[in-house]
Write a protein that binds this DNA or RNA. Structure first.
Lengths: 187, 187
DNA sequence: TACTATTTTCAGTAATTACTGAAAGTTGAG
DNA sequence: CTCAACTTTCAGTAATTACTGAAAATAGTA
């Protein structure tokens, strides 16, 4: 048993892992979970729970909870080695696939329920002028969220190759838009 | 002084405000700040800090901190009424402008610093094979984030009208992409 | 079947984050 | 300048969230 954790992380990895922990916590993901995932993304070989705990200096049970969370987000792959009963984890190779999964899960968990609350509010009969105005705003928010949702669905259906191409358009997006608007002649 | 807070919120508003508080906390924004902002979005008339506190049953100082936070995100407008020294707050009328501001601020605060950490790591000379692999992954993450950043910049430069048009394309995004790919003949 | 390696759960505790009231700060009017 | 109206700050406290170790559960092996 080694007392340091340099067996699994180089200084460079450490910096990036720390940053992703920080970043996660700003986006409502607990720090440890962010660090575990960064570690798995950066490690070529799959790691088992003990190795993750040692690398990040966290308890075995904390690792277990973190992995459970990441698993529920569909962000892990697991492998097994003959003669070793431990589970070994890593992140998918395709980084864009990871992004797609994240977008899809967050939508399912956070956007969809909110859309449902907004729709409920829109079904109600306004009781007074405050409700009337509120409904106007709720309608705007609902449309905004639904449209962004549709775009994210599109996004998630593009292949990684298509996506790369789309994003390379870069500064041309506005132009493509104008062009397409004229082309179809719609609205 | 009224003991209930129904002066500023109808039951319908209450539901939506509560939901945005919840939602905020899942995205790393404190519940109260989310609620304050939802209240301001749904209220036609600008509200002062006392009114906000009464509506949400929170202390005056908590309102002050929440407004400070929202102000730092550029999400508020303020007005004053003659003979009244209080500040009155509300949210911009254009809901898409609010979304643009949110995207721009989050990028500035959270994405850009991470990109900078990733770039630092890429500048370093890999110490061993783990570093070599880690750099490969860091490179992928860097490119992904930079490309998404560019798209968000594009997004933020479109007018609300253009944006609406773009999002109405809906299921046509993939097709526009293929078309444009052939049109320009590039890459 | 019993045995052991491994993972998960969970009650208690630690750490973090949010909130409050009191005090200090700011600003405009007279 | 002084006063009053209003806002902000901040130290202390409350509430929430994260983490741990021990115990329970699970699953492979013989």
């Amino acid at each position: 048993m080694s007392t340091d954790s340099s067996e699994f992380m180089t200084p460079m990895m450490r910096q990036v892992v720390a940053n992703f922990g920080e970043m996660g916590s700003r986006w409502g993901i607990n720090r440890t979970v962010g660090q575990i995932y960064a570690l798995l993304v950066l490690s070529e070989a799959p790691l088992n729970a003990d190795q993750i705990g040692e690398a990040l200096c966290i308890s075995r049970s904390n690792v277990s909870m973190g992995l459970k969370e990441l698993g529920s987000w569909q962000l892990l792959t697991t492998v097994h080695y003959p003669g070793d009963r431990k589970d070994y984890f890593n992140a998918p190779e395709d980084i864009w696939q990871i992004a797609r999964t994240l977008v899809a899960e967050r939508r399912k968990r956070e956007i969809d329920p909110t859309l449902s609350v907004l729709r409920d509010a829109l079904m109600q009969t306004p009781q007074d002028s405050r409700d009337a105005y509120a409904q106007k705003r709720i309608h705007q928010m609902h449309d905004l969220m639904e449209q962004l949702t549709q775009v994210s669905e599109e996004f998630n259906q593009l292949s990684t190759e298509q996506l790369t191409r789309l994003l390379k358009l870069g500064a041309g997006l506005g132009k493509v838009l104008d062009f397409k608007g004229k082309l179809t002649g719609k609205s």
